[in-house]
Amino acid sequence: MPMPKFAANLSLLFTELPFPERFAAAANTGLFEAVEFQFPYDHDLKTLTQTAQQAGLPVALINAPPGDTFGQAALNSTDFESSITEALRYATALGAEKLHVMAGITEPSPDATALYRRNITTAARMAAERGVLIVVEPINHHTVPGYFLHDLDQALGLIQNIPNVKILFDIFHIQQIHGDLTRRLTALHQQDLLGHLQVAAVPSRHEPGTGEVDDARLFELIDALPWPGFVGAEYHPADTTVEGLGWLQPWVTYH
């Protein structure tokens, strides 16, 4: 049986509970091997770190602060570098090895492209000093209209020759942007540019296996590559989180 490892995205899962209680809830299912979440900055770092440690699941990934525009890397933001400093403070304390830096909503232009490369280069250098990998994610325009980084080939071109940056391959987004999932996923892995994986059904963003993509086949591919990292379960449960976890049962790796 193929055995990819899954991380519960606590920003979308277990939302029936206050955020600090979601760590233990994910651990108590016995199905997840890690957690990830989007924006932890409204929570006290010391308390959050203790909560994560008590739950016993590693933190796979967090997002950098998004500002008011779904990210700042492609925008002329004066506080971009300070936002990365804050993100790395959280990532280091939580033991998160990966930081997703969001691009923001803005029209593509030569100026935005040049600014994005400068900012990602800066973030990658700062993160490398902390042992953290920067990942960037193409996001489809159905979900976030106007998002700057909206194409996988665009993303690959923008991070070319920048050390310590890889691609966050979100099956939900890449299917809607390009399709051709198996070829694109395999190519990224072969080029050593696959930084993180996330999954949700397309187009509903509910539980994997309930949409137009054969997620089980992709999980088999992820195992065969092999992909040693986690697959983030970043979806909106159709009902309660626990009631919808049947999709995950066949992929449990450690019981």
Rank of each mutant, 00 (worst) to 15 (best):
Ile134Tyr: 02
Leu156Gln: 14
Gln176Asp: 00
Leu158Gln: 14
Glu81Met: 08
Asn119Asp: 04
Thr92Ser: 14
Glu107Ile: 12
Ala93Trp: 05
His189Arg: 09
Leu156Trp: 07
Ala127Asn: 03
His141Leu: 14
Pro138Thr: 01
His189Ser: 13
Leu94Val: 09
Val199Phe: 08
Ala93Gly: 09
His142Ala: 12
Ile162Gly: 05
Ala91Ser: 10
Ala200Gln: 14
Ile171Arg: 02
Leu94Phe: 06
Asn140Tyr: 08
Pro208Val: 05
Lys98Ala: 06
Val202His: 11
Ser204Glu: 14
Gly211Thr: 12
Ile171Trp: 01
Ser82Tyr: 07
His141Ala: 09
Pro163Asp: 08
Leu149Gly: 04
Arg117Val: 03
Ala187Arg: 15
Gln176Met: 11
Pro208Asp: 05
Val136Cys: 03
Gly131Ile: 05
Val132Phe: 10
Arg130Leu: 03
Glu137Arg: 01
Pro138Ser: 03
Ala201His: 11
Leu185Trp: 06
Glu212Val: 15
Met102His: 08
Glu86Cys: 11
Leu156Asp: 09
His178Leu: 02
Thr92Tyr: 01
Gly179Phe: 02
Val101Thr: 02
Arg118Ala: 14
Val101Asn: 01
Arg117His: 05
His178Gly: 00
Ser204Arg: 12
Ala112Asn: 14
His150Pro: 05
Thr85Pro: 01
His206Thr: 13
Asn161Thr: 13
Ala200Trp: 13
Ala123Asp: 10
Thr182Gln: 13
Gln198Ile: 00
Pro208Gly: 04
Phe80Pro: 13
Ala155Asp: 06
Thr106Gly: 05
Tyr147Asn: 11
Gln160His: 14
Gln160Asn: 14
